[in-house]
Design a protein around this nucleic acid. Structure first.
Length: 429
RNA sequence: GUGGUCAUGGUGUAAUGGUUAACACUGCAGUUUGUGGAACUGCUGAUGAGAGUUCGAUUCUCUCUGGCCACCCCA
């Protein structure tokens, strides 16, 4: 056999193996329950969208659009992109399906993979799953407040609330943000020599992101920079203040972080992130924002909206790190069926269905013939009882019930076996 | 995209410019063939890919691939 190249999964994309599913299901289930209780409805959009959607929504000049999109031309000549983020496709769907004629706001949630061509490392993959929400058609602060409240509740349900902080900030709107940007630029003008090279490009591309720089020298300068709050107009200010008051009322702890920034082109007013409470690893577990102009940008009518996304992979890792107990997805198997010989094997097949219908799924190892190896498996599974159906038993219509703890076994009639086992299980409890 | 670092069975670790690459766990099987857990025994299974140096490379060099870390950005 020629050895050849070993085919592995594509860079930055990983298999999600069985052992990861209990914690993923745990997260899905918690989030889903809460979201549906709060009247969010599920939506799923295609992985592929027209490239222009993201160029317009996220904005040219952003890293996502400039260097991180999986874009290609189809055989038919269309320019398409694998969804790098969840909001733009959903807004597209909102407009396309005329959802403005539904009672507003429209509250949607999704569970989808996102694709970004980034340099991978732990907690940063090229395909990652997100649980996200969008509330479209609500300008008032109640949308932001509810969204953040629900986000917090989900983390609370995941038993993580003591390990995270909610970071929140306002980036104003098109009315007041330009003034702030100008003030920032003025502030940085005579400090240009002291800032890092990345910030020099940031200064041109997106001044606001300079506040978020991690370099110590930039950080120091940012500390004394003019603050957004002094520039917010009255409406933005009130909007922000109302959210904070709501959070206080709802007992959701938050940290106003004037240096928190998001690079999405569509963010307006409220932005927020959930951070792990750790020195190292500052990767956000979740992030969201208000986006009052996006529907218009994509050709809809004036419609205000907000939303957030949770990174499943990161939360899974975080749960593991914090040693949060994950409830078992499946119930423990209780009964194992061992068979010996052809006839027994044939007879036993139908029993699976009888037991399954009775709510007691049977375990078995059909491919194994020796009683020894079958019992070994039964033992490993930790079942309460093992049913043994041998040639003898199959012939005279009986079966052996073996108690795995006491090793006591008895021969009982095959007829009514389901009820007998049911009774025995009950006795053992 | 830039820089650094790493790469040995499924997992975790050894070792070496020269016979058959070692150990532990796991898996599979056996230890009076119709009976699990312990113990013992055996078996399966690896030097990421390609090229170069060399009599000989898993070991040295280069390229690629992938993981991880930093920058960048983000969930």
């Amino acid at each position: 056999m020629p050895k050849g190249k070993q085919i592995q999964s594509v860079k930055g994309m990983h298999d999600i193996l069985p052992d990861q599913w209990p914690s993923r299901d745990f997260i899905f289930k918690k989030a889903k329950t809460i979201l549906e209780d709060y009247d969010f409805e599920r939506i799923e959009t295609p992985v592929l969208e027209e490239t222009e959607l993201f160029e317009r929504a996220v904005g040219e000049g952003t890293d996502i659009v400039e260097k991180e999109m999986y874009s290609f031309k189809t055989k038919g000549g269309d320019n398409v992109t694998m969804r790098p983020e969840g909001t733009a496709p959903i807004v597209r769907a909102y407009i396309e399906h005329g959802m403005r004629s539904l009672p507003q706001p429209v509250k949607l949630y999704y569970l989808e993979p996102m694709f970004r061509h980034e340099q991978p490392q732990a907690g940063r993959t090229r395909e990652h799953w997100q649980i996200g929400t969008e509330v479209i058609g609500e300008a008032g602060f109640s949308a932001d407040a509810e969204l953040i409240f629900i986000l917090w509740k989900i983390f609370e349900e995941l038993d993580l609330k003591n390990h995270i902080t909610l970071q929140i900030n306002s980036v104003g709107d098109s009315n007041c943000r330009p003034d702030y940007k100008k003030a920032l630029k003025d502030y940085y003008k005579n400090k240009f020599k002291k800032i890092c090279s990345a910030c020099k490009t940031r200064c041109k591309k997106n001044v606001l992101m300079m506040l978020d720089c991690k370099q110590p020298e930039c950080r120091e300068i940012a500390l004394k920079a003019p603050q957004i709050f002094d520039f917010l107009d009255d409406e933005c200010k009130t909007h922000f203040k109302n959210i904070l008051e709501f959070l206080e009322e709802a007992k959701v702890p938050y940290m106003v972080n004037p240096f928190l920034m998001r690079s999405f082109g569509y963010s307006t007013r409220t932005i927020f992130e959930i951070w792990p409470d750790e020195e190292e690893n500052q990767q956000a577990l979740a992030g969201g924002e208000r986006y009052d102009k996006l529907v218009e940008t994509l050709g809809g009518q004036k419609t205000e909206a907000a939303g957030w996304g949770i990174g499943i992979g990161r939360v899974v890792e975080f749960l593991k790190k914090k040693e949060i107990k994950i409830p078992k997805a499946k119930t423990e198997p209780k009964i194992f069926l061992a068979q010996l010989g052809e006839l027994a094997k044939k007879r036993s097949l139908i029993m699976f269905e009888h037991f399954r219908k009775a709510g007691i799924p049977l375990k078995a190892s059909f491919s194994r013939d020796s009683i020894k190896s079958q019992l070994r498996i039964a033992n490993k599974l930790g079942v309460r009882f093992t049913l043994i159906l041998g040639q003898r038993e199959a012939l005279d219509g009986s079966i052996i019930l073996r108690d795995m703890e006491s090793s006591v076994q008895e021969t009982i009639p095959l007829e009514g076996i389901v009820d007998t086992v049911k009774k025995r299980l009950k006795e053992k409890l």
